[in-house]
């Protein structure tokens, strides 16, 4: 029966483990990505990361894309799940519509969002004009650019959280809330003290999945801002791409990759540990 593992393990060996080792090795080299002149330079690429302000910006942005998106997605997703789970006509439509953007490629969604946020004839500026406000060039500033990318990402993938919480909510026996209502608990009290603690397994899954998704954000950044203006909206992954694909700094790009790999592993393990402890205590 162990032979059943073989095809999967061979694929993972060739396309994950070997390239990982190779990336690790290249991160210790000076190399342009195609010539045969690969020179071992030790940890110089990693040392260079420390002095690179653009890397620092990309790192901070990545944390924003990861943590702020996760927070927003979970709040929106929880709200939608509570709404869809409560009885009213049309809850099916909300579920279908909120899950819809997940079907669309992040890259194409970025382009679509450009129609909304562009300065010239952008939809958001049109709406502002209705209220007599002057148009704003949303994507010309790094700070608003990062906010918009975070919002777009949260909006697009909140449906995942909704579905996860919906499943969690439907597993909670109705008697609990009924008992609380008889004891005179308000809606908020019953949510805070009964629903929320019972949803911790759902929250764990939802938070970890979205943290990983946000920390490796790539597609919508490429199409919305391409990391600009002046490298201010890059994530670690798009910064890696720009260093490798455009600047041909393969060694440096590899070092960014290895750094991001360990960052995500660290965050995932820490988040898992945090919630596991809560589950025991709660």
């Amino acid at each position: 029966m162990y032979l059943f593992y073989l095809p999967a393990m061979l694929m993972l060996l060739f396309f994950v483990i070997r390239p990982f080792g190779e990336t690790l090795y290249i991160s210790l080299c000076k190399w342009n990505g195609y010539s045969s002149a690969k020179k071992l330079i030790g940890f110089k690429n990693y040392a260079a990361l420390l002095g690179d302000r653009r890397f620092y910006t990309a790192f901070v942005n990545t944390l924003i894309y990861g943590f702020v998106s996760t927070l927003l997605q979970n709040v929106i997703g929880m709200g939608c799940a509570l709404l869809v789970n409560s009885r009213f006509k049309g809850n099916g439509i909300v579920r279908v519509v909120v899950y819809l953007p997940i079907m669309i490629s992040g890259l194409i969604m970025g382009y679509i969002m450009y129609f909304i946020f562009s300065y010239d004839r952008g939809v958001l500026n049109d709406i502002l004009a209705l209220f007599g406000r002057a148009p704003v060039d949303w994507l010309a500033d790094g700070r608003t650019g990062v906010c918009i990318i975070t919002l777009v990402n949260s909006w697009q993938y909140a449906g995942n959280c909704m579905v996860i919480y919906l499943a969690g909510l439907q597993n909670i026996p109705k008697v609990y809330q009924e008992a609380a209502a008889i004891d005179g608990a308000s809606g908020w009290q019953s949510f805070r003290n009964i629903t929320l603690p019972l949803l911790i397994p759902s929250i764990t899954t939802s938070v970890i999945v979205n943290l990983i998704g946000g920390l490796k954000l790539f597609d919508p950044i490429i199409s919305l801002t391409n990391g600009g203006p002046n490298y201010q909206t890059h994530s670690l992954m798009t910064y890696l791409n720009s260093q490798y694909f455009l600047k041909e700094k393969a060694g440096y790009a590899s070092a960014i990759g290895i750094f991001t790999f360990f960052l995500i592993m660290l965050v995932a393990v820490a988040a898992n540990g945090y919630f596991e402890k809560r589950m025991v205590d709660g």
């Binding site: 060739f14 396309f15 994950v16 070997r18 390239p19 990982f20 080792g21 190779e22 990336t23 690790l24 290249i26 990505g33 990983i212 920390l215 490796k216 790539f218 992954m237 890696l240 791409n241 490798y244 393969a250 790009a253 590899s254 960014i256 990759g257 290895i258 991001t260 790999f261 995500i264 592993m265 995932a268």
Partner: peptide, 14 residues
């Protein structure tokens, strides 16, 4: 959990 793009250099050269 691995972000695929983090090892794009190794995969591409392979």
């Amino acid at each position: 959990m691995i972000p695929g793009m983090s090892m794009v250099v190794g995969i591409y050269s392979m």
